[in-house]
């Protein structure tokens, strides 16, 4: 084996075979994948099926708290989880850039394996392509996931009503700040680690118990809690009012945001969920979330009120203001 990815690793010949059998198969060792057929045979699946896909592009691919491999598994598992589905099988599409150190690929693969194991999902099929140097960013991963819906629960944005509470399962912005710092062009040091984690174990056990209390859930990834809540408010056609004092933000993340002029509301998370729940069950659901390691800092962050749809915030100073979609990326300010 070479210590770097070469174009010939993607050309379908002996080197491709070697890469798959000697490297990838070493990490993804399971009976569905093992025969290396053109499709993973999942067998009979009981229940209603959910299906999702996502592409993962992150610079740098390795950052405190995670890497692109863990991200690629968790992102897809979480998309299924917030729709009430337990991930059964996922695919793994790798697009590698010529020259990528083999050790980097192996690091990503081992993270994928560990995350899949944690989430209880089988990596059932895959594909590898190699692009010329300069045409990729080291490593891109796409995953698609099949899941089985929890019986008796479906996302129901239309069930949202005034008096419902808005819950967040933990602190905002950890992932994006960890990645920003890992880029090392900010000259900022802060002990922030990404929150990337699979959320099935946190969310799915709640669904049978609070079936008619949990209206719907989303994972606030790109665009953060601010964008996710705007999308949720418009799909529920409801007015969400956040309470600034209750928004959970880690001190180190807040410090970085203060310096750069970023709003943690719009920073990506990879291990958090937003839930809209019946107001009467909110405290009980928060308590249940807090019993899980990924929900320790779960909190009620606002409520649904009667009035024109959209997202508002009651500020610490006692005022009310709009929380809108941001335009483009947040850019560091001049002064």
């Amino acid at each position: 084996m070479h210590d770097k990815i070469l174009l010939s690793h993607g050309e379908g010949g002996k080197r491709t075979r070697d890469l798959v059998v000697k490297v990838i198969a070493r990490y993804f060792d399971n009976p569905v994948l093992a025969p290396f057929l053109d499709a993973g045979l999942l067998g009979r699946i009981e229940g209603e099926i959910a299906f999702t896909t996502d592409g993962y592009v992150v610079t740098p691919p390795f950052f405190p708290g995670g890497d692109i491999g863990r991200l690629a598994v968790c992102g897809t598992v979480n998309d299924l989880a917030v729709c009430g589905a337990k991930a059964t099988a996922i695919s793994c599409g790798l697009i590698l850039e010529e020259g990528l150190p083999l050790s980097s690929l192996e690091r990503a693969l081992s993270a994928m394996r560990d995350a899949a194991e944690e989430a209880g999902v089988t990596i059932a099929c895959g594909d590898t392509k190699v692009v010329e140097r300069g045409k990729g960013d080291g490593i891109f991963i796409t995953t698609a996931g099949v899941g089985v819906s929890v019986d008796g629960w479906r996302p129901a944005p239309s069930a949202v009503r005034p008096g419902d509470r808005i819950l967040l399962t933990g602190t905002m912005g950890d992932h994006q700040v960890a990645v920003l710092i890992a880029r090392r062009n900010l000259a900022i040091e802060a002990p922030v680690t990404s929150d990337v984690s699979p959320l099935g174990g946190l969310l799915l056990p709640l669904l049978p118990r609070f079936a008619d209390k949990i209206r719907f859930m989303r994972d606030p990834t790109r665009g953060g809690v601010g964008v996710t809540l705007n999308e949720m408010a418009s799909s529920a056609n409801a007015r969400f009012v956040l309470d600034e004092a209750r928004l959970p933000v880690r001190e180190s993340v807040r410090g970085v945001c203060e310096i750069l002029g970023f709003d943690p509301l719009y920073l990506a998370n990879e291990g958090k969920a937003v839930l809209i729940v019946d107001g009467n069950a909110a405290e009980e659901i928060v308590a249940a979330l807090r019993r899980h390691p990924y929900g320790r800092e779960a909190a009620v962050i606002g409520e649904v009120e009667a009035g024109s749809p959209g997202v508002r915030m009651r500020t610490l100073a006692g005022g009310v203001r709009a929380v809108d979609y941001p335009v483009g990326d947040q850019l560091p300010r001049i002064c």
Partner: peptide
């Protein structure tokens, strides 16, 4: 001022 909703206050 806008972010903390001071103007309407």
């Amino acid at each position: 001022i806008a972010r903390s909703g001071i103007r309407p206050l």
